[in-house]
């Protein structure tokens, strides 16, 4: 059974006095396995928050199905298993951190007595010890985000849904939150988080779904998405004459007194390597250059599905040139 399953989710909004209809979600299909960190990636306005609001029952979908652990997401039993951190959370500023967490616990119908010890442990866990009796109006953005995560954990959820959890955090806060989320996965929790920051995805996500203009454009394991996308292979060698190299492969260049041959991703690398050795050359390295998530993302944004990097990824506006691509060896 999937931790989260979304099928054919559609949502539209009307504006201009009910005249114009905007289709925000155009049929979202995605699934999240238990115990994984799923990164929901998309630019601003792609439909990430709308999808999350449909999961959490804050918006009613036009059509489609959302299931949590096999249960309809709107059912109380499903909600009981979810911890949710909204985007840019704002909590009651007249409450202290402890009061707020006790209040959050009460919404799960957890008796207050039972929660007192848990709340103290949660405050410690998110690094807010010593601030439990401080009013939230005195909290910084980072502290609010930590508290938001604490309230999302108050019911010991199986599934955590975090909407842009890193937004507005400084580097230290980002790292702390990242470590906390990774620790939650170690405990067997499932984490579904949205972000438009690629680095967060690459550092944390087991699987990624890319949403653009209300549709899921790509979904899969991050390692597979990147592995599938070998752009080209660099063969580095020396001790071979340029003429000989030109005979073996026309696309070659000299870099730091070493010859670099650039082969297409699907070229017969073995044949080229054998030819170089046969001609007396020495192989120094064979580097398959894969697309980064950024390349994949921008490729999808440009409407391509074949992994061809766009001007946005090489920053030149020119056709892809292996020497300027920031590929991962």
């Amino acid at each position: 059974m999937k931790a989260l399953e979304i099928k054919g989710l559609k949502k539209s909004f009307r504006s201009n006095f009910l005249i114009k209809k905007f289709n925000i979600l155009k049929g979202i299909d995605l699934d999240v396995e238990k115990g994984e960190i799923y990164g929901f990636l998309g630019p601003n306005g792609a439909g990430k928050t709308t999808t999350i609001k449909c999961i959490m029952g804050l918006l009613s979908p036009d059509s489609g199905e959302v299931r949590v652990d096999g249960l309809p997401a709107h059912a109380a039993a499903a909600r009981q298993r979810i911890g949710f951190l909204p985007e840019n959370p704002y909590f009651y500023d007249y409450l202290t951190a402890r009061e707020f967490l006790l209040f959050s616990a009460s919404l799960f119908n957890i008796p207050e007595k039972e929660m007192r010890d848990k709340v103290a442990a949660l405050i410690h866990r998110v690094g807010l010890s010593g601030h439990e009796d401080l009013k939230l109006r005195k909290f910084s953005k980072g502290m609010i985000q930590r508290l938001g995560l604490a309230q999302a954990l108050v019911n010991d959820p199986d599934l955590l849904i975090l909407d842009e959890p890193f937004s507005g955090l400084d580097p230290v806060g980002r790292k702390d939150l990242r470590l906390l989320i990774l620790a939650l996965r170690e405990q067997g929790k499932t984490v579904f988080f949205s972000s438009h920051i690629l680095q967060d995805m690459e550092l944390m996500a087991d699987r990624v779904g890319i949403i653009l203009a209300g549709t899921i454009r790509r979904q899969g394991k991050l390692s597979e998405l990147i592995a599938r996308s070998t752009q080209y292979v660099e063969v580095v060698c020396d001790r071979i004459a340029p003429k000989e190299l030109a005979r073996i492969h026309p696309d070659h260049a000299l870099r730091d007194n070493q010859s670099v041959l650039t082969l297409a991703g699907d070229a017969d690398v073995n044949l080229v390597v054998e030819s170089i050795i046969h001609s007396g050359g020495r192989i120094l390295a064979v580097n398959p250059v894969k697309m980064t998530l950024e390349d994949i993302f921008f490729s999808e944004m440009a409407g391509g599905a074949n992994g061809v990097p766009t001007s946005q990824s090489n920053g030149t506006g020119a056709p892809p040139n292996p020497s300027t691509l920031g590929g991962k060896p």
Binding site: A76, F84, P86, Y90, F91, N109
Partner: peptide, 11 residues
């Protein structure tokens, strides 16, 4: 938007 936090709970 404090209501987001409340209505996402099982009530």
């Amino acid at each position: 938007k404090t209501v987001f936090n409340i209505l996402s709970k099982p009530l």
